[in-house]
Amino acid sequence: MTNDPTRPLLAVRDLGVSFTRKGAPDVRAVDGVSFDVSPGQTVGLVGESGSGKSVTSLAVMGLLPRRNVRVDGRVIFDDDDLLTLPRERMRDIRGRDMAMVFQDPMTSLNPVVPIGVQVTEVIERHQQLSGDAADKAAAELLDRVGIPDPTRRLREYPHQLSGGMRQRALIAMALACRPRLLIADEPTTALDVTIQAQILELLKELVHDSGAALIMITHDLGVVAGLCDTVHVMYSGRVVEGAQRRELFARPRHPYTGGLLASVPRLDAARGTPLHPIPGSPTDVLAWPSGCAFAPRCHHRVDACTDGPPPLENIGGRSLRCVNPLPTTEEVPA
């Protein structure tokens, strides 16, 4: 891949999101999240529910509600700090330069408006096309994302399309303005595996053809393994480990990353291969201020883990938030 690593397209620095509620202490859903996305690069954000991965993406897109939410840190896109931009500018950027695809294609589409109207609306707004030209562009777009018979499909309503087709339509809408950054939040989680494979292949192809960067948000390590250049693993609102994909999968240093890899059953593992679950559950924890939030579930825990919040350190191109990482010699063979 031909990236220019010297100047990232998107630089997230020390991003934090707090949800404030009257009469209750603030909930720090995201804290100290930093990562770069170079032009054309595909970056994975991996985490379980409550890890803050979706909130991070919404913060980057400026889609968090203003009420009861506090966002801090910096999100630099093209020399602009998106967090300080006025709403109007942000809305311009979001449609034109950045777009998002959500998990549930049904709720992301308006159920009472034909697909065609929804797609052409995006085109009209961002490409200054209208009427027949916009219709034609919409049909081309659907065709490009692999929807057969696009002119007929444009007249149909969302419920007449299958889940996979709806997700394709959403991807088409996201790509309508040729964004330079696409954020996909669990785009295949609601879909069957065979359909997931189609959508992932489509995303890979589209990103490759258009040169757009992609942030892939998922809970599935398998999805990022085949797709992403860099992967950041999140736990309880923080990035705990981030590295080049091959590095991360071959030599996980954070016990959480290692634990996840050892706990998922693999299709290619011989039957009888034991699974090593991570004990406890991810919702027990919100305790970063007093130490590593993963410590209660960690088999590699030492006393220092609960002395205070571990910093995010950068070791040889890998970011790691752990005071007692797994040794480098411990390899996960393929």
Binding site: A29, S49, S54, L64, D185, T283, D284
Partner: peptide
């Protein structure tokens, strides 16, 4: 829809 995701996120962060 983005709002419901935020709520879902805060919901799961809720310990109490």
């Amino acid at each position: 829809m983005s709002l419901s995701q935020v709520e879902a996120a805060t919901e799961s962060d809720q310990v109490e």
